[in-house]
Amino acid sequence: MSQLYLYPLWVRVWHWVNAAIFLVLMYTGASMHFNGAGWLMEFQTAITVHNTAGILLTVGWIGFILGNLTTSNGRHYHVQLKGFIGRLTAQSLYYGYGIFRNAPHPFHPSAEAKLNTLQQITYIGVMYLLMPLLVLSGWAFLFSVYLPETLFGIGSVWVVAIAHLTLAYLLVLFLLVHLYVITTGETPMTNMKAMLSGWHRDSHQDTEA
């Protein structure tokens, strides 16, 4: 039985607050986008809740970036180029094939590296690319009067709206995959428990976060 303290309190608080905000944004966003369907929130309420949650998400995202800049958590997002392709291939082969053959995990989390290479590039893509673009497109939506009338020859509001929508769908997709992949620990609940308590517990060391 090994124990690793991988998730400091601020990371856990940020993670769960961010998750809750994201669920609210998904529901209210769908309520605005598909307004008229019965199970959705009332339109004007959805706008207010969505915008408020969006402001909180922005604050949370800035907090996450500042946290990574000022604490050791940031090192998990520094890609080690040496052996990158090999690690990525090994991880992909494990998820695509080895996992069905009860093969051993190719990655072992440690205090230095809690994320496997596939997770690492996914989270970098989500937190350092998609999320800021989503947040920016949200703010651009609100203050579109300060944008040029057209972007790429098309009405700027439409460009912003479609970008916001596409990014939102991509992040919903991420959420689905994320929810599934966290069940691939030693037991389906291993990783979930780690994000709740901060401690990654394993009966053998060949597990991952």
Binding site: M32, I47, T48, T52, V157, A161, Y169, V172, L173
Partner: peptide, 22 residues
């Protein structure tokens, strides 16, 4: 404006192609 955005209108982000694809 940031919180209430009364200018928002239904259907602003509607794109049947992106919706179906997504």
């Amino acid at each position: 404006k940031a919180v209430f955005n009364e200018a928002y209108v239904v259907g602003m982000s509607r794109s049947p192609l992106i919706d179906r694809l997504a």
